[in-house]
Simulated assay, not measured.
Amino acid sequence: MLLTLANVEVAYGAVTALRGVSLEVAEGEIVTLLGANGAGKTTTLRTVSGLLRPRAGQTWLDGRPLSSIPAHELVGRGVSHVPEGRRIFPSMSVRENLLMGAYHDRRHVRTDLGRVLALFPRLAERIAQPGGTLSGGEQQMLAIGRALMSRPRLMLLDEPSMGLAPMIVQTIFEVIAEINREGVAVLLVEQNAASALRIAGRGYVLETGEVVLAGTAASLLADDRVRQAYLGEDVGGRTTAG
């Protein structure tokens, strides 16, 4: 198993954010985390990427405890994190932002840059522009492209569709699926549950820091609780959300 969390607890001071969370991501699969705001999804990703340390439980990457790997070394071990809000460098050019993703190993920069620009032609057109002048969708492409420059085996994606127009959202999900077809495993946090479950193989539902549902994407799409809470349907299948 590429990634394993077992009974993980994480706290912010006196506030417990994760309570006994267990999940797995195998090589080359897409797993999505669903849940309302504050459910613990972002905390889970930050724990995997080493930005937070569990108070209890175990985390493993390739069978090695994540607690023994400093956060800055995880990139070199194949973990990349695209945070919520993109977090690009606004004053740096598109090219410079992308090159920052390859800081730990620059041996394949030319090849990887060509691959990213082929995946995101809009970035190729704006290669010299400051990142801060890009649209929201283009900035999301840039954030994903920067993560790809590190040649990840596991990509952590936090709300990649947030605030984007529907046409751009579709493009982003198509790109995530393409990245996965190239062999990159994805742990995806996404409010757009329907789109996430369409490309994922499995999923977990978090509520107040606990996993309350887990299963294949197909089984979650068919689950009345998921349909009602995250897909905007009532149990009879009628749309309840606008």
Rank of each mutant, 00 (worst) to 15 (best):
V15H: 02
A200T: 11
D158R: 14
P121C: 05
A222W: 08
G136Q: 07
R53Y: 08
V235T: 15
G20I: 01
E190D: 04
V8R: 06
G237I: 10
R238K: 14
L99R: 15
R95D: 07
L197A: 09
A194P: 02
L231S: 09
F173R: 04
L187W: 06
D234E: 10
A185H: 11
D112L: 15
E233Y: 14
R126Y: 09
V75A: 15
E84M: 00
V109W: 06
R238D: 11
R238W: 06
F173S: 04
V211R: 06
A128G: 15
T208W: 01
M167W: 02
Q228F: 08
I69D: 03
M162D: 04
E125M: 12
G50R: 13
V226Y: 08
L66H: 14
Q191T: 01
V205I: 10
V82I: 03
Q191A: 04
R107S: 15
E138L: 06
A193D: 05
V21C: 00
I144C: 01
H72N: 11
V226K: 12
Q140T: 02
T171A: 04
P83W: 01
I69C: 08
R19S: 13
A56Y: 00
G63L: 12
L5F: 07
R46K: 15
Y230K: 10
M92F: 15
R110C: 10
T59Y: 00
V109Y: 07
L206C: 04
T44Q: 00
G20H: 02
V79A: 10
V212S: 07
D112W: 07
